[in-house]
């Protein structure tokens, strides 16, 4: 009888662990995936990526400045700073045109956030870095070429 009780307890414990693994391990990533625009990040051409990210492919030139090195010695770490004086900025997206998946990152700005983001991106080869700014529903872009001497995808 006591043996059976042990087995029973073990069984319930095991079931409990599985249940916890499901709620902790499986449900959270699914909730995250819903918010993360998979299509945009997996798009292979610049136009597809831009369409999926900001909902359009035609943008006008705006007052956007991209600060990035002319020549990046290491494509794995390319510092990029995008700043803009356009008012009502909703989002800033940074693309590396020749990367296998052009979209590197997209930033949703709150009401008090200034049109400025700075980060470091990976670039597979020499490419145009394109910043797309969405402000009051309109799209603006700017481009800067960065020459890469060592690719960033091989590590």
């Amino acid at each position: 009888m006591s043996m059976k009780r042990r087995t029973f307890l073990k069984g319930t414990l095991a079931a409990g662990t599985v249940g916890m693994a499901v709620s902790a391990g499986l449900l959270t990533p699914r909730a995250v995936m819903a918010a993360w625009p998979k299509d945009a990040f997996e798009a292979k051409s610049m136009d597809d990526a831009m369409q999926a990210t900001v909902g359009g492919t035609s943008a006008s030139a705006g007052d956007i400045s991209i600060k990035a090195p002319d020549i990046a010695e290491n494509g794995a770490v390319v510092p990029v700073t995008v700043s803009t004086s356009i008012s009502g900025v909703e989002s800033i997206s940074i693309f590396a045109k020749e990367n296998a998946n052009p979209l590197t990152s997209s930033y949703m700005l709150g009401g008090n956030t200034e049109g400025f983001v700075s980060t470091r991106i990976k670039m597979g080869k020499t490419s145009d870095v394109i910043a797309v700014v969405k402000a009051d529903g309109k799209l603006y872009n700017a481009t800067k070429e960065v020459k890469v001497t060592i690719g960033g995808c091989g590590g």
């Binding site: 993360w36 794995a76 990152s105 997209s106 930033y107 949703m108 709150g110 008090n112 400025f116």
Partner: peptide, 28 residues
């Protein structure tokens, strides 16, 4: 989040460098 209200949401792909750096500015 600044005092509980969202100031920036960054969506990142794998093309952000290892040990990521992020800088931004906000007023208020």
């Amino acid at each position: 989040e600044h005092n509980g209200s969202n100031v920036l949401t960054a969506l990142w792909g794998p093309a952000i460098s290892k040990n990521p750096y992020l800088s931004f500015k906000f007023s208020g």
